[in-house]
Each structure stands twice: as structure tokens, then as C-alpha cells.
Simulated scan of single mutants.
Amino acid sequence: MSDRQIQNVGIIGGGQLAWMMADAAQKLNLNLIVQTPHPSDPAASIADRVILAPIDDAAATAQLAALCDVITFENEFIDLEALQAIARQDTIFRPRLQALAPLLDKYDQRSYFKSLGLPVPDFRLLDEENPDPPDRFPAVLKARRHGYDGYGTFIVKSQEEFSQLWERLNRPSLLLEEFVPFEKELAIMAARGATGEIALYPVVETQQEKEVCRRVIAPADISPEVSLQVSAIAQQLLNRLEVIGIFGIELFLTRDGKISVNEIAPRTHNSGHYTLDACDISQFEMHLRAVAGLPLATPQLTNCEGAVMVNLLGYETSHCDYAEKRAKLAEIPNARVHWYGKSESRPGRKLGHITVLLQQGELEKANAIARRVEALWYSREP
């Protein structure tokens, strides 16, 4: 089958990342078929067809494969071994399963980066056979699988805190790494096409609170040398993995200008949401172009000099669409509000995001604009 014949794209996962592919799929004349557990999941409302099943249900994925020309992923919470059995039946996965193998486990991912000679924080395995506590604090503990949005990541500040946490978690196998005293956290979205071409988005600054991304500023205020180094790391990773699709790569920048790689997400990513409004090709279109075998192009900022993206996180447990607050946010000049249509709010849950396009001379105002957004959103007033 020629890549030019790809029309039906399967997506394992039906959250907001899959939901945000809808406009791009329509533009590219692609059909989206989604495997997701619940009919209320965001992407269920936009898919051309939905298979209601857990994302690790291999039998459901086999049904998905029968309906699709190619299958891609909204998240990495997959059963790789089960998918490999399906792949042997001529199912095309993009990115390929062999490329995902060293990335799904965070300890394996760190080890893979180190094997490539990439700069990474000091790390080691923590488990029953290697139970020694950190020798420096603060230290970072990470779940090896299924951690996201702060879940499964812990910063411990003392040996006592470490011991209490590990016992409370029932002494699982974890990634233990040094805490990097970074000046900025950076990220880059990078796509690789079916013929090996690579498209890079600008390097952005991400701002986290409680290990959850709160804000993204594009482009990051960094030197050209740092930008080139990040871009080179992204190209090295994508080429060595021989991937097809878009990846989000997160990094640390220290005060002395050194870069280290934090994590890689083999999919569209929160740090690229600003591209929906600020770029001529969004990360979602770029990903679909790659997996469908369509040509890639270098993305450009359009009608702006940059953007600030703020996640709209749940701050209470409720069933509310926050229509009045969203209306106020939409009144901010050059703002675009994206609401994911989730019916339930709970603290920390990503309910939507807002992107504010920055015009000439406004890049230095990005943080002030983000604070204005958050003051409106987290206010207890309607």
C-alpha cells in the first residue's frame, strides 16, 4: 500500500490530544477512528468511528487495525507486547513499535539517552536489590511507567522523606535521579516524516508547578547557541529512533548554559498546543501529515511574534462548564480559548487551555499575560 493511499488513521487513546486532531484531519481529508474507553472522552465526539474499549485491549486494537490504514498513539500507556503480535499481521504503527520500546519505561528511556551520549541528569535504578537512598537532596523519584501530569513524580528533600515515601509506595522499582537546579525548562516539538525529513518547531519555555505544566512561552528567551543545541538533540533522537510522527522533547537549561535531556513523549504534547493558533501548521497537522506519508514543511509563526499558552486546570471537584469564566478569558486581546468538553472537574485535571498571541514588543509581557489569565481562571468568582 502506498502512503499516498492512507485515508483511515486509527488512534489509540481518545483524550484531548486526539480531539485536537479533528480540524487537521478534515483539512487533510483523513478519517479518524479512535479506540477509547468511554463515550464521553473528548475524541469520541469528533471521530468518524469509535471503538469503545480500554487502550490496552489488544482484541479491540485488532478490530481497529482492520478498519485503518495506519495506527498512531495519543499516549504511551500501551501494551507493547500485545501490539507487536498485531503488527506481525501487517498492521502499520507510526511511530513504529521498535522505536517505542526504549521509551515507555522511564529508566530504560534514561539509559537509552545515555547510550547515545546525550547529556542527562545522574540517575540509577531504585528497587529491592538497589535500595540505597540518594546521597544528595533534593532528589527526584519517578514511576517507571504510567506517570503523567505530576502523577508518579516525587521530589524528596531529606532521607527521612525518601524513606517514608518509598515505604508508602510499597518499595516499587523506580527511577532515581538528581535534582537539576535549572534556570529554565525547555521543550521542542520535532516531527520526522516517512522519507526521513525532519520539521522542527521553535524551542519553548515550559513552566511547571507541582510537576504539572502550567504555562508555555514561545519562543523561549534563550541564546541561538542553546537553540541550536536543542535542535541538534531533537534531530539526533528522531533519526536514531527512525520514527515517523511528532515527538515532544523536554530539557533542562542550567544557569551556566548547559543542557540536559529530561524526557521524551512519543506523540503530540502539551508544550506544542500553542501551535494551533500561532503556527501555519499545528503539531496535530504535522503529526497526521507524517503518519499519513504526506510531505512535511518547516512550520512558521503566523500573525504574531510569539505566544503564551496557559493550561486551564481544575481547582475543585465539580460538574461545570465554566462558561462565564471562559467568556471573560476570550475577551483578552488576541486570546483563543480551547475547551476540551470534559464533564467533570477535579483538582489538577486539564480542562482546556488558552493561547494568547503576542505582537511586536509583547514577548517580555508573556509572564504578565499568563498571570492575568490565571487570576481570572483561578478566581472563585464566576
Results as ranks from 00 to 15, higher is better:
residue 164 Q to F: 10
residue 109 Q to H: 09
residue 148 Y to K: 02
residue 127 D to C: 12
residue 117 G to E: 11
residue 182 F to K: 06
residue 129 E to H: 14
residue 165 L to M: 01
residue 185 E to I: 04
residue 168 R to M: 14
residue 209 E to F: 07
residue 104 L to W: 10
residue 138 P to V: 08
residue 124 R to W: 08
residue 149 D to K: 03
residue 186 L to C: 03
residue 162 F to E: 02
residue 166 W to H: 04
residue 181 P to V: 08
residue 139 A to S: 15
residue 209 E to Y: 08
residue 118 L to T: 03
residue 138 P to I: 10
residue 97 L to T: 11
residue 146 H to F: 15
residue 100 L to N: 01
residue 119 P to Q: 13
residue 204 V to P: 03
residue 191 A to H: 04
residue 105 D to C: 10
residue 183 E to S: 15
residue 143 A to N: 15
residue 162 F to N: 06
residue 171 R to K: 14
residue 130 N to L: 14
residue 108 D to S: 08
residue 154 F to A: 05
residue 140 V to M: 14
residue 104 L to P: 08
residue 126 L to H: 09
residue 161 E to M: 10
residue 105 D to I: 07
residue 101 A to R: 15
residue 136 R to A: 13
residue 110 R to E: 03
residue 113 F to P: 10
residue 104 L to A: 14
residue 180 V to D: 08
residue 187 A to L: 00
residue 126 L to S: 10
residue 170 N to A: 10
residue 144 R to E: 06
residue 159 Q to D: 09
residue 101 A to G: 01
residue 112 Y to K: 02
residue 179 F to L: 02
residue 121 P to R: 11
residue 211 E to I: 02
residue 104 L to H: 13
residue 170 N to I: 04
residue 186 L to F: 05
residue 144 R to V: 05
residue 121 P to K: 14
residue 137 F to P: 04
residue 175 L to W: 09
residue 185 E to C: 10
residue 100 L to D: 09
residue 183 E to Q: 13
residue 180 V to P: 01
residue 187 A to G: 03
residue 171 R to L: 04
residue 208 Q to K: 09
residue 169 L to H: 10
residue 193 G to M: 00
residue 192 R to W: 02
residue 142 K to Q: 15
